[in-house]
């Protein structure tokens, strides 16, 4: 009866750079059920985008490799698929919305042609030309672009409209999973609200699951069912949206993120930022990767990487502070 759609298990992603290994992602686990939205939050360089790209196997073969772990989609390990089989998955069962609609569209192809491209490539239902065109019209209406504009080119659209085109392309084959990498970061707030509302409506209508990569905790609060907080390539906290946004069982980094955003509802005189910077992936500290910036740093943090400590099923924190408070992961 499992509703599980995506299961990322102990995923490690490394890059070869100047003969050395750079570890961009280490030991990330999470699952996404049908229709669910999983948020991945963190700052630049935390490995969020690399993680998103790896699910579609879009990382450059020449430099990136996956030394360990699996990405199971409906029970099949995507990492074991042949190139050809992977192409059948991309854009059909899993598709992607990129951050920047200015650069992710082809400037010399009309938007209608770009939407139809993915559909024509997969064409599971053996639609004829007229039916394909009709499907394009449908999808465009769905994302709120009048169908008569399909002959136009990307430069004739505004940023918000272009992002709708990108969403239409991603949705045209009715994928089961959508990977959205900062889908509204390039947009203004009022347009961002429009685009987020469209994504949410479509998810409800079509039952699409989503991995939403963002740095904005506000978007996470509005859109996600569960959340993974990433820091320096690791998922340091994972839990349901309620787990992350309430209670006091939190990773110090999660607390730091919340302390850094000015709150609109309450008066705060000073922000409490996290001192220092995220370490570069080619020079990670020993022990807990957050320890040089952590105000609760203990001796053990400097040498031993923390386990995942759970306070309940599905909510863990990778931090020594919770050694006694939480239960250690039970391997079953």
């Amino acid at each position: 009866m499992s509703q599980e759609l995506l299961h990322v298990k102990d995923l490690h992603i490394s890059f070869k750079a100047k003969g050395k290994d750079v570890r961009a992602v280490t030991g990330v686990d999470f699952t996404v059920d049908k229709g669910q939205t999983m948020g991945i939050v963190g700052e630049s360089g935390a490995g969020k985008s690399v993680l998103g790209l790896s699910i579609l196997r879009l990382l450059p073969d020449a430099t990136a490799y996956i030394p360990q772990g699996s990405i199971e989609f409906k029970g099949n390990d995507l990492l074991k698929l042949s190139k050809k089989d992977m192409q059948k998955v991309r854009g059909d069962q899993i598709s992607m919305i990129f951050q920047d609609p200015m650069t992710s569209l082809n400037p010399v192809m009309s938007v209608g042609d770009q939407i139809i491209e993915a559909l024509r490539y997969h064409n599971k239902d053996k639609l004829n030309k007229a039916q394909l065109e009709q499907r394009v019209d449908e999808v465009m209406e769905l994302v709120g672009i009048p169908a008569y504009r399909k002959k136009e080119y990307p430069h004739q659209f505004s940023g918000g409209m272009r992002q709708r085109v990108v969403i239409a392309i991603a949705l045209v084959c009715n994928p089961e999973l959508l990977i959205a990498d900062e889908p509204t970061t390039a947009l203004d707030v009022t347009i961002q609200a429009q685009v987020l509302a469209i994504i949410r409506d479509l998810q409800k209508k079509l039952g699409t699951a989503m991995v939403l990569i963002t740095h904005d905790l506000g978007i996470v609060a509005q859109m996600c069912d569960k959340v993974g907080v990433m820091y320096a390539g690791e998922m340091v906290e994972h839990g349901s949206i309620e787990d992350i946004f309430s209670g006091d069982f939190h990773h110090p980094y999660t607390m730091g993120l919340f302390g850094s955003i000015p709150n609109l509802e309450t008066e705060s005189k000073r922000l409490s930022p996290i001192p220092g910077l995220m370490p570069p992936p080619n020079n990670l500290p020993e022990g807990c990767r957050f320890h040089p910036r952590c105000k609760h740093c203990m001796e053990i943090c400097k040498t031993v990487a923390p386990e995942k400590y759970y306070d309940k099923e599905g909510h863990y924190v990778a931090c020594h502070l919770f050694r006694d408070k939480g239960k250690e992961e039970n391997h079953d």
């Binding site: 904005d216 509005q222 949206i241 946004f245």
Partner: peptide, 20 residues
């Protein structure tokens, strides 16, 4: 239009202005 980082407003229907 600002998404706030709290769950209190999660179920609130955002009042969205149309157009650009």
């Amino acid at each position: 239009a600002i998404p706030t980082a709290s769950l209190a407003t999660r179920e609130r229907e955002l009042k969205i202005i149309r157009g650009e």
